[in-house]
Each structure stands twice: as C-alpha cells, then as structure tokens.
Amino acid sequence: MTRRDAGPRSIASRLVDSLTENRWIGLAGLAIALLAPFVNATPYAISVMTSAAIFVMLAAGLNIVVGYCGLLDLGYAAFFAVGAYTSGVLSTRFDLPLVATLPAVLVATVIAGVVIGAPTLRLRSDYLAIVTLGFGEIIRITATNLDVTGGPSGIYGIPGLAGDRISFYYLTVLVVAVAVVGAARLGRSRLGRAWRFVREDEDAAEAMGVHTYKVKMAAYIAGAIWGGLAGVLFAAHLSAIAPSSFTFLQSALVLMAVVLGGMGSIRGVVIGAVIISLLPELLRDLADYRFVAFGVLLIIVMLVRPQGLWPARAREAARSTAPREAVR
C-alpha cells in the first residue's frame, strides 16, 4: 500500500477535491438521468436506461456490505431474487398491485438477510465469500425447483408500477435516487462509521464498544433491503422473472460495478454501475466480440486505477466540523 503524502497539497489537487466533494455533483447526476429521455426516447433506450437505474440501486446496496463494511458477498443476486419473486408471486397469485406487496418484500428480504447472515457473519473474509456464493446458488436453484415460483420458466404477467415506459423510468430514477442518498446518509451516520470501523479493524472496533456481529448483520440487512427493492423494480420493469436473471454472473457484475467505481464511495459506485450496465449496450456494434471487449476494458481500467474510478477518500472536509476555538 502506498503512503500518501501528508504534506501540503498542490493547488490542482485542492481544486479537484473541491469539485469532487461538491454536493451538487449528486444533483447533476440526477439531472442527467432525468434529461436523458429528451435525448433518446426510443423504447429500447428507455428500457436500457431503466435497467441501468435498477443496477445502480443494486450496486448502492452491495456497496453497503462490501464497500462500507468490508464483507465480501458473492451471492448478492439472492436478495435481488427474493425481492423480485416475493412481489411477483404475491401480485400474480393474489391479484395485488405491486405497491401492496412492498411490506411483504421488506419482511422477506430482512428474513433472507438474517437467515443468510446469521450463520455466515461469524466467518472471516474468504470463508464468508464462499458461503455467500453458495447461498446465492441455493436461492436460484430453489426458485427453479419450486412450483410457486413457476419453475425454470418463472413468472409472467407481473403488473407494472406506472402507466407507460417513460413514467416508469422516471419513477425508477426517483426511487433509485432516494435509495442512493439513503445509502450515502447511512454511510455517514453512527452505524456507517461502525461499518467502516469493522472494515478497518474488527478488534479495535470491538474494543471501542462496537458489537461487530450486530453491526455486520445490520450491513447485511440494509444490503438485503436495497437488493430486494431493486428486485421489485426489476419485476415491474420486465413483467416477467425467471431464475436465469439471478445467476452468479449477476452477483459478479454488481460486485464489479462496486469495485470499478471505488469501494465505499457512493459516487464512484453509481458511475461504476452505469458503466457496467451501459457498456455492453454501447459495444453492441462489435456483435459477438462485445463481451470480449467489455472484459478487456474492465481489465485495463483495473490495471490503471486499482482503487476504482472515483475512490472514497479518508480526508474529511473541515467545514463539516466545529471550529476548534469552540471547545477549547
């Protein structure tokens, strides 16, 4: 690990800091998302952008688990699946509007988070990764084998959340924006600090009174809720879900978005998610070779910027803190 220079920093780096730390950056991102349909409103483009927004929400959720808390989760699609299937099954079986299934989705995802988290969070790093990988597959295979989930062909005819494609896109963008801001705020709270204490040094965190098991469980549950709600949006978007949407590849892509953007950095993660979800579409002209190009591009980015495109920084802005004279 390189030791960053602690001395006076250059004017250029200060300028970059003030730009990247600007709170308006988030609103600018939201504005881009809101204005995008005015540039291209073909059904295809709207569909791709909706998927990208849902993917951003997934990445924001996984960032809580992996980025803030440092728990490597290779089966995150499991929570995505639990949310999508809970809302899909309830709405088609009982003829409910999708919104009415939200309480059940929350309960189901929290239960899934606890069931998966309780036995696994006692494990450290590599073991946790393997076990979550297994749980991700268990959820997918269960969905394939149960009758209630429609077996391998899945569920059809899930009602939408909004009338047409455009309004559903806007609804999705707003929900995702709230989810991203929520994740960021959690990250700056007492709980969010506790997550990062656990990531940095579990023993020191315990010594300061952080119940590391509970805190890790909280990260897992928060991640599960974000993933589950993204699953509801996904079900509403496609109106059909099948086990093939919740493979290990999906988990790996979300993790890729988090790592590419910069673990623990909400801005980076949003950008990472947008790139991961849009790049294969932009490379469509390469036909059969597009995933080769996609892979090569990702490898190049990770070689050039291993810390991610927009990494989290430990430095905090002085404005957020009280003047020292006040306490002396």
Binding site: R193, E200, D201
Partner: peptide, 13 residues
C-alpha cells in the same frame, strides 16, 4: 487505528 479513516473519525469511534 482505523487507517483509512480520518483522524476525527477514529476518535469518534
């Protein structure tokens, strides 16, 4: 210490 966190955050622990 929590090396990648700010000094203030460390004390906030």
């Amino acid at each position: 210490l929590f090396g990648e966190m700010s000094v203030l955050d460390n004390v906030r622990a």
